[in-house]
Simulated assay, not measured.
Amino acid sequence: MRGDVIVVAVGLITALAFSTLIKAFTDNVINPIITVAQGGNAPALGWQLGKSGNPATFLNIGAFISAMIYFVLFMAVVYFLIVIPYKRVQARRGVTVFGDPKPAKTCPACLSDDLPVAASKCRYCATDQPPYPR
């Protein structure tokens, strides 16, 4: 389980869910406003902007609310089934994900840059480490 892969996967899933929300907004709110000059009709939760009975000019708020609910539920599932378990697994391994990384210092001998601030010896080359400047 690589951190970068999970972050990219969560990003793609978020983009997919957000694209559905945007599509619903454009199909059911923006498009009827644009087609008001042409006419249309459809019964649903919303307002008729043009002639009665013209679905092309119906401002369908119900479909948009449905897409928002879908987005929230979808992201909750992603968060509780992917993000939280991944954070727990990585915390057991001592890796911080989805947050600020712990401060680290660089070994002057081997140039490894992931040493804990309190380390007195390098874990890779075993050289003594100078104290971390505060």
Rank of each mutant, 00 (worst) to 15 (best):
V117M: 15
G94D: 05
T26G: 07
L16M: 10
I33Q: 13
F18N: 06
P32K: 09
S120L: 15
A67E: 07
I22F: 09
I84S: 04
L45W: 11
A119E: 10
F71Y: 07
A104R: 02
A91L: 01
I61W: 08
Y79H: 15
K121R: 13
L59C: 15
D113P: 01
D100K: 14
F25R: 00
R93Y: 05
A67S: 15
Y79Q: 06
D100Q: 06
G50K: 13
S112D: 07
I22G: 01
L111V: 00
V77F: 09
I84Y: 01
F25C: 02
Q38R: 03
A126W: 12
G99K: 01
V97N: 00
V95E: 13
A44C: 00
S112Q: 08
S19C: 13
L49G: 10
V5M: 12
D113G: 14
P32A: 06
M1I: 10
D27R: 04
K51W: 11
Y132W: 12
S112Y: 05
P133D: 10
Y132A: 12
V117S: 14
M1A: 04
D113R: 11
R134P: 10
N41Q: 14
L21F: 08
N54M: 02
I69A: 14
R93A: 15
N41C: 04
G3S: 10
A24E: 02
C107K: 05
P133I: 00
C110H: 03
L59Y: 14
I69P: 04
A9Y: 04
F74P: 06
P116V: 05
V7K: 12
F25D: 00
A44Q: 14
F58A: 10
V8P: 00
T20E: 14
F58V: 09
D128S: 11
L21Y: 13
L111P: 00
P108L: 05
G3D: 06
I6A: 09
V95D: 14
L49M: 10
G39W: 15
I22R: 05
Y86C: 13
R134S: 11
S120Y: 08
I13N: 01
G40L: 02
Y132G: 01
Y70I: 10
T26Y: 06
T127H: 07
I33N: 12
P133W: 01
P55H: 01
Y124R: 15
P116Q: 09
R134N: 06
A91T: 02
T57I: 07
S19E: 11
A37M: 14
F80K: 12
L73T: 08
I82M: 05
A104S: 07
K23Y: 13
A63P: 00
A37V: 14
L59I: 08
S19Y: 15
D113Q: 01
S52G: 04
L12Q: 12
P133Y: 03
I61K: 03
Y124D: 14
P130K: 07
T57L: 06
M1S: 05
T26E: 12
A76E: 14
I34Q: 02
A91K: 04
L21T: 11
A24L: 06
T57Q: 09
N60W: 13
A119L: 12
A42T: 06
L12F: 15
F18L: 12
K51V: 15
M1E: 06
R93W: 08
A118M: 09
I6Q: 13
C125V: 04
I30Q: 09
K51C: 09
M75Y: 04
M68Y: 05
Q129P: 12
T35W: 07
V7L: 11
S112N: 02
V29S: 05
K23R: 09
I34W: 04
V29D: 03
